[in-house]
Design a protein around this nucleic acid. Structure first.
Lengths: 340, 340
DNA sequence: TTGTACGCGTTATCAG
DNA sequence: CTGATAACGCGTACAA
């Protein structure tokens, strides 16, 4: 099957046993200097590399973790994955990414496949799979689920507060009819309420500006959803629209441009994620910044901790910062609204 | 290491040998009806799943291929990967994605790691790794390299012709000073010349409009490169800028907006890839469409062919289509150019 | 300091 | 139709 050299080849070449070669590599046993050198010469000579497969079946670490995502097309996912990889690298682990779409069945398949020892740990970034589902499907391989308020999740980001801050900012600009296009795909049992909707409600209700009719939920959280739903909210009187992510915001922006509405003068828009798109768009997007780096480092640290011995989980609460750019303006009270 | 049940457990439970269980699963041997049923009952009962690791070390297929990419942050990469996955699925293969950045060393590491039998095939999408490098690092595991004009590559897309068509379109609009910001990261031995530059030259030289000073090469092919290089080209008199990919085009667009230049009236822009960004941008981008679906299906078919027995490679030549939207306009000859 | 022998879970070969 | 046995490549008690 495999034309490459094995540990036996090395042992034979040097004239020692496989055991000695194995221990020379792992360093778990003292080997006399001269012999050690001959062994490493032979290894280099034969370009010998231990088979991860055989190591795995023999019960040792693969030094590999799997990351499960629903899609690779959202720009945010790519950034997050690269951050995860960088963190894993610091611990000597590699990363393999698996795409599962929105299929529960496929997610379960993949997890069970991987947890046979193929990987040492699993990062579950699937919005549709709960912490407990991941834990049970992956057992006995440790799994960390991205961003859930759960006892088995290492980091909680305070989404409601972040959205609340953004909504209050719009209130301070004089807006009262504030629309929301939610973007969270995490509808699983882990989340009882949509945290973005909740945050906006917390800000608007006390101000008497809360209107459930101005809340739209985008199923996929994509550009097209913003494009499609913006009109409905504006027709209901929204002078500002909060988007559940920056792609949705881009869609709203595009809708405004196509319908001749000037942003921010005639329509204010906020995003969420503060991804690269936020600075690319024109006008640059005021957006709620998500601390991806901190999320990645905390999650990876927790996963590696579990792999290396089941240490106690540290819980971190991270807050969100509103980055103000050019997509929101004070409400022009006197302005006559265009007819859509 | 692994709390799950093995084939021995199933065999013991049913009272047959491991051999029989194995053959019942693979179907490579006729098993009497009643026995077969008891075996499958036990399998379901114990939730038995063959260990991929053990299968691999025993020399059988993993039904898994690896895709190697430099980065997951370019939107084009994500789309391409999902297309690859869909095609692989049709043949029953799963896909694992590995990120290598721009490091040659890391790419080689990863390939050698994977080719120990961990995967049955490798899709090399790394712009910095040549066909031959991939072939030699992955041997004996078959590898297909994305989009190279090479005898061991199944599909060749005629990039020069595509860019030539776009350049000719700009010529037909009256433009003479046509700038180019190249975006191809494939600088390896596989490509003797930059195919995008070559295509533009083929169009402009006969028209007497070719000026090497209007060619800029962006190292990373990112938004920022377009933003940074557009000014230089306009300062040299460009009235139209061709971007090597849609992200660069977005950067050029952003530069124009920040400097008060109207697109397309004062500056025409073309993109390349025709990614989702092309329709998102405002104005919508005229762009060279790359047939990702066809590339994916041809490449996967070739790879699976190699895995399943080294069939002869079919070569397909695909051409590119220019999708005309709103980012180019006829040159206004009389207009006084703004001072940048 | 080094070597022997066995186990990991599966598949292939050869025997009944 | 079914079973016993060897082999895959590596790690690691246990023995010397």
């Amino acid at each position: 099957m495999n034309g490459r050299s094995t540990i036996s080849d090395v042992a034979r070449r040097v004239g020692v046993s496989k055991t000695t070669v194995s221990h020379a590599i792992s360093g778990k046993r003292r080997i006399s200097g001269a012999l050690k050198e001959r062994i490493f010469d032979a290894i280099a000579d034969l370009d010998y590399r231990p088979s991860p497969l055989a190591k795995g079946v023999a019960g040792s670490r693969m030094m590999l973790v799997a990351a499960l995502v629903d899609s690779l097309c959202q720009p945010t996912t790519g950034i997050l994955l690269e951050l995860f990889q960088r963190e894993l690298e610091r611990f000597g682990y590699g990363m393999a990414v698996f795409t599962c779409g929105d299929s529960q069945e496929r997610a379960v398949e993949t997890m069970k496949f991987l947890s046979s020892g193929l990987v040492d740990g699993i990062l579950n970034l699937l919005p549709g799979v709960t912490v407990n589902q991941a834990l049970s499907c992956c057992s006995p391989v440790p799994a960390m689920t991205y961003l859930r308020p759960h006892i088995d999740s290492p980091v909680y980001i305070d989404i409601p507060s972040g959205m609340k801050a953004a909504a209050e900012y719009l209130l301070s600009l004089g807006h009262r009819r504030i629309g929301l296009i939610g973007g969270s795909k995490i509808k699983a049992v882990d989340m009882l309420v949509d945290p973005q909707v909740e945050g906006v409600r917390m800000a608007l209700e006390p101000a008497g500006a809360w209107d459930p009719d101005l809340v739209a939920i985008s199923s996929e959280g994509r550009f097209e959803d913003g494009l499609a739903l913006a009109g409905r909210l504006v027709a209901r009187g929204s002078t500002a629209i909060m988007a559940g992510n920056d792609m949705i915001a881009a869609g709203v922006l595009s809708w405004a441009s196509r319908n001749g509405l000037k942003v921010p003068d005639e329509l204010s828009i906020t995003g969420y994620d503060d991804s690269q798109a936020a600075t690319m768009l024109c006008p640059a997007l005021t957006s709620v910044q998500v601390p991806f780096q901190e999320i990645a480092s905390a999650t990876v640290a927790a996963l590696v901790g579990r792999i290396d011995g089941g240490s106690i989980l540290q819980h971190r609460v991270l807050s969100l910062k509103l980055v103000i750019r050019d997509s929101c303006a004070p409400l022009k009270t006197g302005a006559k609204r265009k007819n859509i």
